[in-house]
Design a protein around this nucleic acid. Structure first.
Lengths: 327, 327
DNA sequence: ATGAAAGCGCTAACAC
DNA sequence: GTGTTAGCGCTTTCAT
């Protein structure tokens, strides 16, 4: 592909002049500009963003880490990230890790090496060291929706998980459920752990403890909607009706949760919005990092808590009289 | 972040030597190597991929364009792309365009400027000029699952849409349906158009023509599963049962289609596999492009046709006797 | 086995 | 207004 210098030669001017017309930064004589623009049009020239990035010492890109793109919640998160990134001309590098530490590490190093300006993390394996690793390298990090990380440095966009789980448990308890279980999730994901803890705390406040066996529970609280929806299928194939025999709740309120054949009671989490806010925060941190010292900027700890209302639909109901009501 | 030259100074050697140990390319004395490795470990040095890319004249990345990440089929496609890309150390830049020409163009230019090695296109607006634009710049392009493009240059990974739609229509026709409609989709997407055409051709073979009004149809053939699933909801809210009153079919066989409460009759399309194959093809084309002339490589036209079996579930049934059976 | 120097395609000072 | 020059952080000959 043509280079800046080719355009310069073609238009009979210097590199700087071409650079000036491209970036519209300095005054260029009308005549000159036209010659340059013609040369650009004729060659289909496109500036080399890599060279620009090298000079600017910035990849002009954002990294985003999600456990599973296939989960609509994370897909929405990425959509939000992309929209916000597009607004500031940043590219988005996606990595989905399935919560495996190896994939997480690989993603972190790839992002570091490509000098992304910041990384948005949408999900992590339990006990992951990723944020620390990134932060230690001076990379701004924003955590989107994954709750309790001990490190105070990353930015955070999240819900009040405790309040959300309290609402879920209150709803179920009010319906008469006393045997509640948490739905184990395949990926050992940090957000799920946080929700489990919040769930157990809400139970404890009522003198209850989570039932371990799915079969014994009259209500199942899932880590997220996709697991809840899968659980409904599994339960019903095993002959237990939802909500007649078991109540099931989710978390995220993915579009499908509102489907007439699913009607899932869940906690609403606006993935697109979370992605957008997290990205704005990340970009701000990156910008700040460039003006101030890297380390300091990474330390700027901001937190945004988004609303997470309980949406009651038809996957929850009072337990059957012959079981479950007994404590 | 530390640079190569900092490591060199720290280890008391030259840049080349550091470069050699990092890439393991030349023989380095054990002693020297150890000093360098220590310096790298102490500083947490990570080579600057941007500088490398500039030198290599390759972004070492792939671009992927999808209309909607939120649609599980496209999410799976991207997962497939990422897996294959990770295998060869390529990063992936995602752009989701919602089939708007403006977003498509923006993505194309971003990819061009960032010098990605190739681009995988998973969906396009009807009549999009994108592949041509990219190809004309010498960029290898692979089309994944979007059927008929007139341009012979891009690589193609697709199904036999005609055969798939013929199977769908045969199934419905065999059940007794004579009034079949195609489900209009929001995004004016090229793959959807292809399917519509194939659907109409299959109808024509039976002397039938698509019914325009959703209300008049006894069977609705949707462009993809997500639209089919949404249609089931819409129909049932309007009081028409699926499949008792209307049959509905999808396309893609997203995981949800097999859910016990959905049980969608559909055409299977393995998104992950399509993404993987398309990416391998794209990487091969890029490699070839680097050794041979760009233009020529882009012209290497390969085609892979993946199987697309009809999966019959419970969203289709014979039409009710009081209507629909009449031609 | 190691080093010096040129150059990838751009931007940014600074001359003119 | 426009041109010259010196990097950005690497890799890559080519010497030594």
């Amino acid at each position: 592909m043509a280079r800046l210098i080719d355009i310069a030669a073609r238009a009979g001017v210097s590199k700087s002049t071409v650079s000036n017309v491209i970036r519209g930064t300095a005054l260029v004589a009308e005549e000159t500009r036209r010659k340059v623009e013609r040369a650009i049009a004729e060659t289909g020239y496109r500036p080399n963003a890599i060279a620009r990035s090298l000079q600017a010492r910035s990849g002009n890109a954002l990294g985003v880490i999600v456990p599973d793109l296939t989960n609509p919640f994370f897909a929405q998160l990425v959509v939000g990230v992309e929209r916000a990134a597009a607004t500031s001309g940043q590219a988005v590098l996606t990595a989905h890790t399935e919560c495996t530490p190896a994939a997480e590490l690989a993603a972190a190093y790839a992002f570091l090496e490509r000098r992304v300006d910041a990384v948005v993390i949408g999900g992590l394996s339990i006990g992951a060291s990723l944020p620390g690793l990134l932060l230690d390298h001076g990379m701004p990090v924003v955590l989107a929706g994954l709750g309790g990380i001990e490190d105070p440095r990353p930015g955070v966009v999240d819900h009040d998980t405790a309040a959300a789980m309290e609402a879920v448990v209150r709803h179920l308890y009010g319906l008469g459920h006393r045997r509640l279980g948490f739905l184990a999730h395949g990926l050992r994901e940090i957000a799920g752990e946080g929700r489990r803890l919040a769930f157990e705390a809400a139970l404890a406040r009522r003198g209850l403890v989570a039932v371990a066996s799915e079969a014994a529970a009259t209500a199942l609280v899932a880590h997220d909607d996709m697991h809840a929806i899968a659980a409904i299928d599994r339960l019903e194939r095993a002959g237990r009706r939802v909500p007649e025999d078991v109540s099931v709740t989710g978390y995220d309120d993915v579009p499908l949760a509102a489907h007439g054949r699913i009607r899932l009671t869940t906690v609403r989490a606006d993935g697109v919005e979370m992605g957008r806010r997290a990205t704005e925060m990340a970009i701000a941190a990156a910008r700040h990092g460039r003006s101030a010292g890297q380390r300091e900027s990474a330390g700027e700890s901001r937190r945004i808590i988004l609303p997470s209302p309980l949406i009651v639909r038809a996957s929850t109901a009072a337990p059957r009289r012959d079981r479950g009501t007994g404590a």
